[in-house]
Amino acid sequence: MKKVHVTTTVNGDPVEFLADPRETLLDCLRNHLDLTGTKEGCGTGDCGACSVTLDGTLVCSCLVLGVEAEGKKVETIEGMASEGELHPLQRQFIEHAALQCGFCTPGILVAAKSLLEQNPDPSESEIRFWLAGNLCRCTGYDKIVRAVQDAAAEMRGAA
């Protein structure tokens, strides 16, 4: 199929790429832009490993076409730490051992960041329901939920 030229912004950087109209945003990030931090666990919108934000909205990038990114702002895990400074969520995940294999981690961090932007003080059950679309097979979620709680507290200045 004839390729489409896409101009977009990823983690603040202007980028362009040629996409087959059938390719997902996830494919384009990973294979055209070498941003392999965003993972594919299912390709059907069920696991959340591919979570990114598109103009600030949390999406499964496997359910978005690459061509839909035209003129939009995409944020991925690679843009989460600023100037060498980890985001509190990233630091809390390491300190809490909230990752084992780490494959779900980028998606969960992006999703959790988006939660805390909307709700700086989520309850345990709000965290669990928000992250219900992000599968983790290794941890049983316990340490993930605690890491999000502590990051939220830290960001509120309560820690």
Binding site: E78, M80, Q90, G102, T105
Partner: peptide, 8 residues
Amino acid sequence: DGLDKVTG
């Protein structure tokens, strides 16, 4: 390997 895994 924590840092590599939280930064993608």
